[in-house]
Amino acid sequence: EPEARKIVEKLINNGLSPEDVKRWAEKNNNPEVKKAAEEYQKR
């Protein structure tokens, strides 16, 4: 999901860690963003 990846990169560029992004995604019920954050961590 390229859109989710863009969101993850934007949040990380704004100073969030991938863990923060995953928590944000869970709080906002956004499994695509959570998955993208996990993939981002593996890179």
Rank of each mutant, 00 (worst) to 15 (best):
K6T: 11
K10W: 14
V33M: 06
N13V: 07
K6C: 13
I12N: 00
A4F: 07
Q41G: 08
I7N: 01
I7G: 01
V8E: 00
W24G: 04
E9W: 03
I12P: 00
P18S: 08
N29L: 07
E26S: 01
I12W: 02
V8R: 00
E3T: 12
A25T: 00
V21G: 02
G15T: 03
A37Q: 02
N14Q: 15
E19I: 06
K27A: 15
R23P: 00
K10L: 14
K42P: 09
A37V: 14
Q41E: 15
N30P: 01
E9M: 06
N29V: 05
K42F: 07
W24N: 04
K22A: 09
E3G: 10
P18M: 12
A25N: 00
Y40N: 04
Y40W: 12
E39V: 02
E39T: 01
P2L: 15
E26M: 01
S17A: 06
Y40L: 09
I12G: 01
E19W: 00
A37T: 04
N28Y: 11
Q41H: 07
V21T: 02
N13P: 01
D20H: 05
K27P: 01
E3P: 09
E38P: 01
N29Y: 06
E3F: 02
E26H: 00
K34Q: 10
A37H: 01
E38I: 09
P18E: 04
E32Q: 12
E1G: 12
N13E: 14
K35R: 12
G15M: 05
R5G: 07
K27Y: 09
E3S: 13
K34N: 05
E3Y: 02
V33L: 09
Q41N: 07
E32V: 08
N29G: 13
Y40R: 05
K42G: 10
E9G: 04
L16N: 05
L16R: 03
E1Q: 13
E19L: 05
R5C: 12
E32A: 15
E3V: 09
Y40M: 10
K34T: 08
A37I: 13
E39S: 04
Q41I: 15
N29C: 11
E39D: 12
W24T: 04
R43V: 13
K10N: 13
